[in-house]
Write a protein that binds this DNA or RNA. Structure first.
Length: 369
DNA sequence: ACTATAATAT
DNA sequence: AATATTATAG
């Protein structure tokens, strides 16, 4: 397996999803908290949006949740955010007028094409038989995503697949039933992601089209600071459906994770040649004075910058499989990183590492954004 | 876990 | 007001 591994990494790099595939996913993952923490505001707000923002503001992340929320994961986060911008932003917005966070319903999930893509990928990797809500949810590893969310979506997706099968199989006869206008309109989301071969034709293997490791790896292509990402997204039309997604707040969920975002964005024009990723080979090094400066130099210079993380930094862990990072142990303080995690390792083992072990693991690469 | 149906958003 | 999308009850 040694040799395979050696070849695997370069290939992994080549097959990275395009930025546009990844970017919108962060819409559901970047929380209003984070946006507020970065003092991001809505550039063009319509009346409707304002209404939504009102709903969005009560985002009570209870302080207790940060510290020891779940039943005892990792020791205790060393970093103590003394009511910095983060805390004030979160708490400020959260306490604006109301507290009964636990009585609030979580907003309905919006299945963006990107989220759906991830869903399809997960189902593909699991195989249709193993693809049940729980497993799918785990594989997707999207924070805040519930089993019910997935179940509901899966239900609809199955109906969609059934119709597709009926159409392709009984083609002429159209035995399955006519395609109504409602169907066509309903399916546009599903049409956005290619339906894997074997979904429609179970039992028949497709040529060279295997779904190997679920590679939800975030791309290094271009990354920006969270603030910039959010701002960019808000400029997009997506803002209209910026359905506030509140997740895992208030200590209700013992296993509730700290929210993490998938932060990516592609530069509008000139793209510097992709710099080969440095994989493994030791602990990350280099220093990072302040992230804004680094951001500029990084984007201008073509890329990312290897950095040495410190415990006080924010970590956005992008991972797949069953690995649910223990983000409760990480407190937001200084800088923002993305952790690239190679999927070759055993996730369960990885997840058992303590935080300090985590940041020194050779299979993790940190890039400052 | 699956399906039907209610609730909600557009 | 209609219907598309997600939540929830069975």
């Amino acid at each position: 397996m040694r040799e395979e591994e050696a070849n695997w990494f370069p290939r992994w790099e080549e097959e990275l999803p395009s930025p546009e595939e990844l970017m919108p996913l962060s819409q559901t993952l970047i929380t209003p908290d984070l946006a507020l923490a970065f003092d991001i505001r809505n550039p063009n707000s319509s009346p409707q949006q304002q209404q939504q923002q009102q709903n969005q503001s009560p985002i009570p992340i209870s302080p207790g949740q940060l510290g020891g929320g779940g039943g005892g994961s990792i020791p205790s986060p060393p970093c103590q955010p003394h009511s910095s911008e983060f805390e004030s932003a979160e708490l400020g917005s959260g306490n604006l007028g109301d507290e009964p966070a636990r009585t609030l319903k979580r907003p309905r999930l919006v299945w963006t094409p990107q989220l759906h893509k991830r869903f399809v990928d997960a189902v593909a990797h699991l195989g249709i038989k193993n693809a049940v809500p729980k497993t799918i949810m785990q594989l997707m590893s999207v924070d805040g995503l519930t089993r019910e969310n997935v179940a509901s979506h899966l239900q609809k997706y199955r109906l969609y697949l059934k119709r597709m099968q009926g159409l392709s199989a009984g083609g002429a006869g159209n035995g399955g039933g006519p395609l109504s206008a409602a169907d066509a309109a309903t399916d546009h989301l599903f049409a956005s992601a290619p339906v894997p071969h074997h979904f429609l034709h179970p039992g028949r293997p497709a040529p060279g089209d295997h779904y190997l490791p679920f590679v939800p790896v975030l791309h290094h292509q271009q990354q920006m600071a969270a603030a910039a990402v959010i701002a960019a997204q808000q400029q997009q039309q997506q803002q209209q459906q910026y359905h506030h997604r509140q997740v895992g707040q208030f200590g209700s969920a013992p296993g509730g994770q700290f929210e993490h975002g998938f932060l990516t964005r592609q530069l509008p024009s000139q793209q510097p040649p992709p710099q080969p990723i440095h994989r493994m080979g030791g602990p990350v090094s280099a220093q990072t004075p302040n992230y804004v400066e680094d951001l500029e130099s990084a984007t201008a210079g073509g890329g990312r910058k290897k950095v040495k993380p410190v415990k006080e930094d924010i970590f956005y862990v992008y991972s797949g499989q069953n690995f649910k990072p223990d983000l409760n142990a990480v407190r937001p303080c200084l800088r923002v990183y993305i952790i690239f995690m190679f999927l070759k390792s055993n996730f369960l083992q990885v997840s058992q590492h303590s935080f300090s072990d985590l940041i020194s693991m050779p299979t993790i690469i940190l890039y400052e954004i």
